[in-house]
Amino acid sequence: MKKLLALVLAALMMMSLAACAAQDAAAVADATAAPEATAATEEAAAGAIDMSAVKFIQDGVLSVGMEIGYPPFEDLAEDGTTPIGYDVDFAKALGEKLGVAVTFVNTAWDGIFQGIGVNYDCVISAVTITDERKESMLFSEPYISNYQAVVVRKDSPLKINSFLDLNGLAIAVQKETTSDILMSDYVSTGSINSTISANEKVPTCFTQLENGEVDVVVVDSSVADGYLASNPDKFVKAFQDESEPQEFGVAVAKDNTALQAAINQAITQLTAEGYFEESVAYWFGK
Rank of each mutant, 00 (worst) to 15 (best):
A262Y: 00
E176L: 11
G249F: 00
S230K: 15
V150D: 01
E67A: 13
G249C: 06
A172M: 07
A6H: 14
N264M: 05
I49E: 10
T32V: 15
V250K: 01
N231S: 12
T268K: 15
S156K: 01
K134R: 13
D75W: 09
V216D: 06
A238S: 09
A172E: 00
E42N: 15
S52Y: 05
F248R: 00
A34N: 06
L7Q: 11
F163M: 08
M183T: 07
P203M: 00
G95N: 02
A40Y: 11
M137T: 07
G168V: 09
S221D: 02
P72K: 02
M15R: 11
I129R: 06
T207C: 10
F56P: 06
A149M: 06
S145L: 09
A272W: 07
A10M: 11
G60W: 07
A93G: 08
V28W: 06
G115M: 02
S140H: 01
S162L: 03
T207L: 13
G69P: 02
S16D: 11
A10Q: 08
E278D: 15
V214C: 10
D110V: 13
D87S: 13
A18Y: 03
V102A: 02
V152S: 08
F248K: 07
I263G: 02
M51W: 05
D220G: 09
L7E: 10
M137V: 10
L164F: 10
C122L: 12
M15H: 06
A172Y: 00
V236F: 09
Y186M: 09
N146Q: 14
I263M: 10
D89R: 10
E213Y: 10
K134H: 04
G85N: 05
K254C: 04
E244L: 11
R133E: 01
R133V: 00
G111K: 11
I160F: 05
A93W: 00
V218M: 06
P245Y: 03
I84W: 03
Y143W: 12
A272P: 01
G65N: 02
A238T: 08
T38S: 15
D220L: 12
